[in-house]
Design a protein around this nucleic acid. Structure first.
Length: 549
RNA sequence: GGCGACGUAGCCAAGUGGCAAGGCAGGAGUCUGCAAAACUCCCAUUCAGCGGUUCAAAUCCGCUCGUCGCCUCCA
């Protein structure tokens, strides 16, 4: 298995240092909604993790939350809340997004504010070894004390000085020295230290937490390409100088950056799109397929057309799982082994997910063919599901049946006052629910009273995700039962304004109409439903309906 | 100024020395009362341009044009 290592600037054979692959991925600084860059980063490394597990490795995956930082303090001050409150809010929001994205939770999530002692230990060690020096209550890392400083980002101190964008701080020995510990300013959160009250510098938390939870040498350290300098460069400096052991990380993996048309998405320029915005229109499978459809080291540009294409692709894969489930036994059996092998082969080459996805599509095509000629494709279908799962794709239909079931179940739970169970249940199916769904509304109505005194995060999230689009088919059904067809067609939309309904029974009644060969009425009902957002399809197995996309 | 990435069909995107993966869109069929869905098949003599190396280049080298990132907070 080969992985591209930023440190050596080439692909290298990957073998874990011990029997367990140790991965550290730089997490978020929670001061705002998480954006597409976070999504890309999370999906990429989630896929790395899933694939390593698929290949039989034990994996220990650590991702930190940097919950104390300049931006958090600034934003909290503006909002008039404490930095802690702000960080907690957006940390929760981040993990909600991760659930929807089908990103596995890290094995360990350390918080910077809870690891101050370890950071102080590292800083003190660096001062002792004269790699760092205190000055005016702060502590700085002495970059000139490390001969190979700059090895990750491939730059030298002198060339960086030429950039001349460094603001000199008078107490620094060298303008490139960076802060390990910052002296406290009035009104800021501060911790005691040997140098007085203060708080950690930006890079030290990752060194400390990585050392604490994964040891002195880890297998893979990941992050976005924008972290190569200065963040990761400085992590290497701190960690290797502290432990005296090299390398701090054997493999440095960096994902390409998300671009928004012309320019990179950037927080400073205010141009970024949140993950939640994407999920207003797209499914997790579609979004993951979009991200993994290009190689992780290349930049990714947001394009509505491209996400839409990925969405259709996801549907196609999902469909292959469904097609021809009537198991043929007579016409041979589709062997999925070659696909599994090819999948492994391309993923082994620096996680070539675009090619892995191509294998999935090839397999889907063969499954469809097998289904057509009545061959047994159940193994192949299982393989497709499994391999898709390695990429974090669920291939679950977000169709009506699960929504219907959820509604029934949820109503039951409410009547039993089992709110906690209900919240859990909603959370588990939330990714599959359509944003623009009647069921969501019905659920909301059922839960309105609950919301008033049970404001769990999940329920509120659920409410926010819901778009108003109520419609009732009860009235229509009543009229259909009375066979007032023309009246129905005329007033369909008016009837569709209130309360709850069962589309299923409508479909059943229309079936009767079709059996009576009154196609014109049947077609008009179908058209009206389409205008209302319901797609009706007549298949040999009977009519099915789903929400329009 | 320093470091780096990229330019492949209408769109997205693999491939980095040996006849150009895959998806979306498009076209033709199958199925169907019709429609839709689904499925099958077809769809780049050519890889920004120009030179060079080679039996052989989208792939290596040089130049030109174009786009973008990092060097300051960022995943």
């Amino acid at each position: 298995m080969k992985i591209y290592n930023t440190l050596s600037a080439q692909k290298e054979e990957f073998k874990p240092f011990s029997d367990e692959v140790k991965i550290y991925v730089c997490g978020v600084t929670p001061y705002d909604e998480s954006h597409l860059g976070h999504a890309m980063n999370a999906v990429v490394f989630d896929t790395v993790r899933r694939y390593l597990i698929f290949r039989g490795y034990k994996v220990k995956y650590v991702q930190n939350i940097t919950d104390i930082e300049d931006k958090i303090i600034d934003r909290a001050n503006k909002l008039g809340i404490t930095p802690r409150e702000l960080a907690e809010k957006y940390t929760n929001r981040y993990f909600e997004d991760m659930v929807v994205l089908n990103v596995l939770r890290p094995d360990i999530v350390p918080y910077a504010t809870e690891e101050i002692p370890k950071m102080l230990e590292v800083i003190q060690g660096l001062v002792k070894k004269e790699h760092a020096y205190p000055a005016k209550g702060s502590v700085y890392f002495r970059v000139r004390s490390m001969p190979d400083y700059g090895k990750l980002s491939k730059r030298t101190l002198d060339s960086m000085m030429a950039g001349a964008r460094i603001e000199p701080v008078e107490e620094k020995e060298d303008p490139m020295d960076f802060a390990l510990w910052k002296a406290a300013k009035p009104g800021e959160p501060a911790w005691d230290s040997p140098w007085g009250k203060g708080r950690p510098g930006w890079h030290i938390e990752c060194s400390a937490m990585s050392l604490k939870y994964l040891g002195e040498t880890i297998d893979i350290h990941g992050g976005g390409q924008d972290l190569i300098f200065p963040h990761h460069e400085n992590e290497i400096a701190q960690s290797e100088c502290f432990t005296g052991k090299k390398p701090f990380a054997r493999f440095w993996m960096h994902n390409g950056l998300f671009q928004l048309g012309e320019a990179k998405m950037s927080k400073s320029s205010g141009t970024f799109i949140s993950i939640k915005q994407v999920f207003e229109k797209h499914s997790a499978d579609g979004f993951r397929l979009f991200i993994l459809g290009s190689h992780y080291r290349n930049p990714l540009t947001l394009s509505e057309e491209a996400i839409e294409a990925a969405e259709r692709g996801a549907e196609r894969l999902t469909q292959a799982l469904k097609n021809g489930t009537a198991q043929g036994k007579t016409n041979g059996k589709l062997d999925a082994q070659p696909f599994r092998q090819k999948f492994t082969e391309v993923m082994d080459d620096d996680f070539n997910t675009p090619q892995a996805i191509a294998v999935l599509f090839d397999l889907a095509k063969e499954i469809n063919k097998a289904a057509e000629k009545g061959a047994n494709a159940s193994d192949a279908r299982q393989t497709l599901q499994e391999l898709a799962g390695v990429l974090g794709l669920t291939l679950k239909e977000d169709g009506n049946s699960s929504e219907q079931e959820l509604l029934e179940e949820a109503k039951h739970l409410v009547s039993e006052k089992k709110y906690v169970e209900m919240a859990k249940r909603i959370e588990s199916v939330l990714p599959q629910l359509q944003t623009n769904s009647f069921i969501r509304n019905d659920l909301l109505k059922s839960f309105d009273s609950v919301l008033k005194d049970n404001e769990s995060v999940t329920i509120i999230q659920f409410k926010n995700a819901t778009i108003s689009n109520t419609a009732s088919l009860n009235a229509i059904i009543a009229h259909l039962n009375n066979k007032n067809y023309s009246d129905i067609v005329e007033n369909l939309e008016n009837y569709a304004k209130s309360s709850t309904a069962s589309t299923e029974s409508l479909v059943n009644i229309r079936k009767e109409i079709r059996q009576n060969r009154q196609f014109k009425i049947a077609d008009e009902i179908r058209n009206k439903l389409f205008e209302m957002g319901i797609v009706l399809e007549d298949t040999p197995q009977g009519a099915i309906w789903k929400w329009k996309k």
